[in-house]
Amino acid sequence: MTDQQAEARSYLSEEMIAEFKAAFDMFDADGGGDISVKELGTVMRMLGQTPTKEELDAIIEEVDEDGSGTIDFEEFLVMMVRQ
């Protein structure tokens, strides 16, 4: 866990972390443990947004600390705390 990830967790109660985990699992449609650009786009479109591929890439790049091209749960928490 990076310093950013530990800091993000410090702002959240266990209840909030559990709620974010449920949301993360909804995004992680294939159950792979991370959110891909495609999965992020699908959920955002379900919520009425129309992000471009470039916008989706930028969202993932902003929090993808390990350079995997996807968002894992710890990175997702950082993203949610920043919102």
Rank of each mutant, 00 (worst) to 15 (best):
M16Y: 04
G32P: 03
M46R: 09
I60H: 14
M16T: 13
E15M: 15
S10Q: 03
Q5V: 13
G69L: 07
E7V: 12
M46N: 07
D66K: 15
G33V: 01
Q49V: 08
L12S: 01
D66Q: 14
Y11E: 07
I17W: 05
M44A: 03
G67Y: 01
D3C: 12
E15K: 13
A6M: 10
M1Q: 03
G67E: 12
F24R: 00
D30S: 06
A23C: 05
E65T: 07
S13C: 04
V37M: 13
I35K: 00
E55Y: 04
E54R: 10
Q5R: 14
Q5C: 11
Q5N: 05
E14C: 03
E65W: 15
L47Q: 02
E61Q: 06
T50I: 01
E19H: 01
G48S: 05
G67S: 12
D25W: 01
G48V: 00
G48W: 01
T42V: 08
G32C: 11
T70C: 13
F24V: 00
F24M: 00
L77C: 04
Q83H: 14
M46G: 10
V37D: 03
A58L: 11
S10D: 14
D66Y: 07
V43R: 00
F76G: 01
I71L: 11
A8V: 11
L40R: 00
I17S: 02
R9P: 09
T2L: 08
F20W: 08
E7W: 12
F76S: 00
D57R: 08
K53Y: 07
M26L: 11
T2E: 11
M44F: 06
D57W: 02
M44N: 00
Q49W: 06
P51I: 14
A58S: 10
F27N: 01
M1P: 02
E75A: 08
E74S: 09
G41R: 09
M44Y: 06
I60T: 13
A58I: 05
E61A: 15
M46W: 06
L77F: 02
F27Q: 09
K53F: 03
D30W: 02
I59N: 05
S68W: 05
K53W: 03
A8L: 13
V43C: 15
D30K: 10
A18N: 15
E39H: 12
E39L: 08
A22D: 09
D3A: 10
M26T: 15
L56N: 02
E19A: 08
G33W: 00
D72W: 03
T52W: 01
K21R: 08
S36T: 13
S68I: 13
I60S: 06
M46I: 07
D57C: 10
E19I: 02
M1L: 07
L77Y: 06
I71Q: 00
M79W: 03
A22F: 08
M79N: 02
T42H: 15
A6T: 09
G33I: 00
S10G: 10
G32F: 05
F20I: 07
E14V: 07
F24A: 00
D34Q: 08
F27K: 00
G31Y: 02
G32Q: 09
G48C: 02
L12M: 08
T70N: 08
S13N: 11
S36H: 04
E62L: 08
D3F: 13
V63M: 13
D57Q: 14
S10T: 12
I60K: 04
L12D: 04
A6S: 11
L40D: 01
M16P: 00
K53G: 06
E65C: 11
S13K: 05
S36W: 05
M46L: 11
G69R: 05
R45F: 10
G33R: 02
A18D: 15
E15F: 12
F73W: 09
R45A: 14
V43Y: 00
L47H: 03
G41W: 07
R9D: 15
F20G: 03
S68T: 12
E19Q: 11
S68P: 06
